[in-house]
Nucleic acid binder design. Structure first.
Length: 571
RNA sequence: GGCGGUGUAGCUCAGCUGGUUAGAGCGUCGGAAUCAUAAUCCGUAGGUCGGGGGUUCGAAUCCCUCCACCGCUACCA
């Protein structure tokens, strides 16, 4: 039987995450996982922080904190954002704390080496004697040999956009301490991607059915792959295994190499925590597993080429990715999110004022599935007020308040005759409805949010058409049956809402007088006349309250104003 | 430079392998209704589907080219 192993890109423990990260790799994954579970599928959702790499050591040193403490801090901050958004992983760990991670990463290295997929090369790099470390390209400044710009970065000149080699700088400078680095020779291991491609990956990737935006990209990547360095001279990270070090010391695995292995090591952590240490194998080494990586587009090469190469190259029967839903980028009001430039949404303030479910809904409804898109405050307000409050929330209010007022808060009976009549009207004469789950399982999250609104609209049309407020005076039984039909529909709506709006779905569920968790319901089939009602008649409804409060214009205006003021203040 | 993406009604976007009068939501305007969070429902608005060329009986949908915007180019989605 098929099972789904879902991962979200490991967030780098070097700062807070913003809505761009959330909408790119985490929220859609969470919604996907919830949807799968309601469909009765077996799912494991894995994530954790990526905690190695130079950027982290520099960040920590700037703050004068031990590396471990520094990454623990950001690991916690990031996790709390996920918690507030209702993004629930089955495992959340970190590459520096996972008890399995170092050993497993070394195991990958060892097996790749033994298999002949690693190369060793000697090269010159710039070494900062003050900081006692080799410098990554981006931490070197100098005068651009191409255009003479004095503040060029080691990887690229910001003025002439020329791709640079920092060894070509006449006046290299360490961007961290300002001193002049010296050239030193060092030996490093490289992953032989061309060989891996020729033996397996090329064929696999060509045969694989990628999403359209990923397919061409992968094909091009494979054409041009080159061996890629997988070690670095530093002390923060997973050490190169001694038995393969060949006399080299002071080297760790490059962060990109160990990071994706985190998916596997965290799964092992999870298995051990559940008292079944071998369980991870079922997820990673069974052909029945569908491995789904949620990532942003910048991660496509890793997840479609590099990591699969590693997984295959160790010859341990690891599964290769089944789908890699990659999103484009998400901006804020037309500009890139940038903490340093004050162009961001403070998530603590955000969640103090707004509902997490509303955020989930809006983020998905505006998510960058086919092209870059924006978080836009006015659109956020509109999504809440128009789609959630007016269309969905008000539907619940108008129906349930009516029942409270005239039917003693009980869902009325429906005769077979009335059921047939109202099924016909609701299902064939009130507009189109769709199964949002189908869209969600197809990674079309935007579409899923649209379906939700459309489905609520169908019931609004139904209410208007049947007009129970006047019918009640002439035929209260029929009016009651119409309202009961609406309750049945609301119960469906609550289930449809559950993956995207888990909290609100649950409230609607209990408002209808249902017990238990809506998220634990079996995903409903698309309603068919005569076979879709749960038969809620006689059930006492719960307390009816406003499902989605509106957001006032002034509140949004203040947000936009604050954003611009903050940006102006930092520039 | 290389590679990729996008350009459809005021706004945000759907339109798979080409086929009757190009669609939805929001907004606008008019009307109906009054159960409801002044919510809902109905109708309306006429966009040369970025420009040009080509293939075809027929293209928003395929090909070429040009323009514009965006991204990636491999350690922060």
């Amino acid at each position: 039987m098929v099972r789904y192993l879902v991962t979200s890109a490991l967030p780098y423990a070097n700062g807070p995450i913003h809505f761009g990260h959330v909408v790119g790799a985490y929220l859609p994954a969470d919604v996907y996982v919830r949807t799968l579970r309601m469909h009765g599928e077996e799912v494991l959702y894995v994530c954790g922080a990526d905690e190695h790499g130079v950027a982290i050591t520099i960040g920590a040193e700037r703050e004068n904190r031990p590396y471990a403490e520094y990454v623990a801090h950001w690991r916690g901050v990031i996790k709390s954002t996920f918690d507030r958004l209702g993004i629930r992983f089955d495992v959340w760990s970190g590459t520096s704390i996972s008890p399995n991670h170092a050993e497993l990463s070394q195991d990958f290295f060892r097996r790749l080496d033994i298999g002949g997929y690693l190369l060793q090369r000697e090269e010159e790099q710039l070494y900062c004697t003050t900081d006692a470390r080799f410098l990554a390209d981006r931490y070197i400044a100098g005068t651009c040999p191409n255009c003479g710009y004095p503040e060029a970065r080691g990887d690229e000149c910001p003025r002439c956009a020329k791709w640079l080699n920092p060894l070509d700088f006449a006046d290299p400078r360490c961007k961290v301490c300002g001193s002049t680095p010296e050239k030193r020779k060092t030996r490093h291991w490289y992953l032989d991607l061309p060989k891996l491609r020729d033996e397996k990956l090329g064929e696999w990737a060509a045969a694989h059915e990628w999403k359209p935006n990923v397919a061409t990209f992968v094909a091009n990547q494979l054409k041009e792959v080159e061996p890629r360095p997988i070690t670095r001279d530093m002390h923060w990270g997973v050490p190169v295994p001694e038995d393969r070090a060949r006399g080299e010391s002071g080297k760790v695995l490059y962060v990109w190499f160990d990071a994706p292995i985190g998916y596997v090591s965290f799964t092992r952590d999870w298995a051990e925590a559940h008292g079944a240490p071998d369980d991870w194998q079922k997820w990673w080494r069974s052909p029945d597993t569908r491995l789904v990586h949620f990532i942003g587009k910048d991660n496509i090469p890793f997840h479609c080429v590099v990591f699969p190469s590693m997984l295959w190259g160790v010859k341990q029967d690891y599964v290769l990715p089944w789908q890699v839903p990659a999103n484009e980028f998400y901006n804020l009001e037309g500009r890139k999110f940038s903490t340093s430039q004050g162009w961001y949404v403070d998530l603590d303030e955000f969640f103090a004022r707004y509902d997490a479910d509303t955020a989930r809904f809006y983020l998905l409804s505006s998510s960058p599935e086919t092209k870059d898109s924006d978080f836009n405050w006015k659109d956020f307000q509109s999504a809440n007020n128009v789609l959630l409050a007016d269309t969905i929330g008000n539907l619940a209010s108008r129906v349930l308040k009516f029942l409270e007022k005239y039917y003693e808060g009980k869902i009325p009976a429906v005769s077979a005759e009335h059921a047939a009549e109202f099924d016909r009207i609701l299902l064939t004469e009130c507009g189109a409805f769709a199964d949002p789950g189908a869209a969600l399982l197809d990674f079309r999250f935007r579409r899923g949010t649209e379906d939700l609104a459309s489905n609520a609209r169908v019931a609004n049309v139904f209410v208007d058409r049947v007009a129970p407020w006047s019918l009640r005076k002439t035929d209260p039984e029929r009016a009651g049956a119409a309202l009961a039909t609406c309750c049945e529909w609301l119960a469906l709506l609550a289930q449809w809402m559950a993956p995207i709006l888990p909290g609100k779905a649950q409230r609607l569920w209990t408002m209808l007088g249902n017990l238990g968790e809506v998220g634990e319901q079996r995903w409903p089939q698309l309603p068919v006349a005569g076979a879709w009602r749960r038969n809620l008649s006689g059930q006492r409804i719960g307390q009816v309250d406003v499902l989605f409060p509106k957001i006032e214009d002034a509140v949004i205006a203040a947000e936009i104003d604050a954003l611009h003021k903050r940006a102006a203040a930092t520039s």
